[in-house]
Amino acid sequence: MKQGQFEQTYQPLWELLEQHIIALESPQHSLSGDELASFASRYRRLCHLHALATDRHYSSHLVDKLGDLVVRGHQQLYRRKQPFMQQLISFVVAGFPRLVRAQQSYIWWATALLYVPGLIIYIAILWQPDLVYTITPPTQVSSFEEMYDPQNRTLGSARESDTNVQMFGFYIRNNIGVSFRTFASGILFGVGSIFFLVYNGLLMGAVAGHLTNAEFTQTFFSFVVGHGSFELTAICISGAAGLKLGYALLAPGNLTRAESLKRASKIAIQLIYGVIIMLVIAAFIEAFWSSNNMLLPWQKYLVGGFLWALVIGYLVFSGRRLDTRLEGKPQ
Rank of each mutant, 00 (worst) to 15 (best):
C236S: 04
S260C: 10
P330M: 08
I135A: 10
Y247R: 13
G169W: 07
F183Q: 02
A264S: 06
V141S: 03
Q331Y: 10
I176P: 07
I121G: 02
K81H: 14
V165K: 11
E15C: 11
T134A: 15
Q5I: 15
S30G: 05
M294Q: 14
S60L: 15
E35F: 06
G73H: 03
S291Y: 02
I235C: 02
F195N: 05
V280R: 03
F223E: 00
Y43M: 04
A124G: 09
G190A: 06
P117F: 08
S265Y: 08
V100R: 00
W127S: 12
F221R: 00
R72H: 03
V132A: 04
H227V: 01
A248T: 03
T233Q: 04
Q104A: 12
Q75E: 11
F170N: 15
L326G: 06
G190Y: 06
Q151R: 15
I277V: 13
S59G: 01
L62S: 01
L232D: 08
L188A: 11
E15L: 14
G313W: 09
T139K: 15
K2V: 08
L197T: 01
K329C: 03
P252N: 10
S60R: 15
V191F: 14
S105C: 14
F96E: 00
H29D: 13
L17D: 07
H74Y: 15
I120T: 13
A214K: 10
L131V: 10
H57K: 12
S30Q: 11
Y10Q: 08
P129K: 04
V141K: 02
W108P: 00
S318K: 07
G239P: 03
A23V: 06
Q270H: 13
E35Y: 08
L315F: 05
L77M: 09
Q28W: 08
S60N: 15
D149K: 06
S59V: 01
A258P: 07
H57F: 13
M278V: 04
L279F: 06
A234T: 03
P83R: 07
V316R: 11
Q140C: 11
L326D: 08
R159F: 15
Y273P: 03
R263T: 05
R101H: 04
I272N: 07
V165L: 14
I107A: 01
G209L: 06
I267F: 03
Y133E: 09
M1W: 09
T54P: 13
